[in-house]
Design a protein around this nucleic acid. Sequence first.
DNA 1: CTCTTGATCTTCT
DNA 2: GAAGATCAAGAGC
Length: 207
Amino acid sequence: MPKQPAPPSSNAAVTFPPLRKPLGRNFFERSVHDVAPELIGATLLVGGVGGVIVEVEAYHQSEPAAHSYRGPTPRTMVMFGPAGFAYVYRSYGMHWCINFVCEPEGSAAAVLIRALQPTHGIAMMRRRRRLEDEKALCSGPGKLTSALGITNKHNGLPLTAPPISVHARKLEPEIAMGPRIGITKAVELPWRYGLKGSRFLSKAFPA
DNA sequence: CTCTTGATCTTCT
DNA sequence: GAAGATCAAGAGC
């Protein structure tokens, strides 16, 4: 094992830049196309571990790349419910991915969280991922759930109550935009958003 | 750097 | 039975 800086020897508070009050349900109860870009720069914490959201994708019921496209199923139930809850699904038989459910009840839309810049609980993330490289800890939708300990147990949990919280950004970041990744339908829709120039993306946006 | 492939299994057809 | 909102490792350049 490579040497790491010694972690704090107690549970004494570790200082981080102060976070804003957690976002409430009303933040998510809007068009997924408004919410998705506004999530760039926000902080996601699960059990105190997390970081700044640097990449997301919007999915909407009306479009065939969305899991909700064919109507409610046991898996996609949560998306047809109210906004402000987590939709967690199994990807390729081995990874978990987390979405934030948006829009008023009746409209099934969600934002896939694709990458974080780690800020809180980095030592824990390194243990879970068995990986040192900070910029690769959360640089993909399956990687960040592993780093944050997200599994199907989190499916349907509120994003507005422990252990999950989402904190608004403090500054207006520069947003990059482009086609979504890893899909074969509706590939032309530019519904992927990212923090311009971030080193923590799953994949760079074309200049 | 890019490209290819194997791993692995739930979901819906 | 096939596809899939992925990842990591290996080969080639």
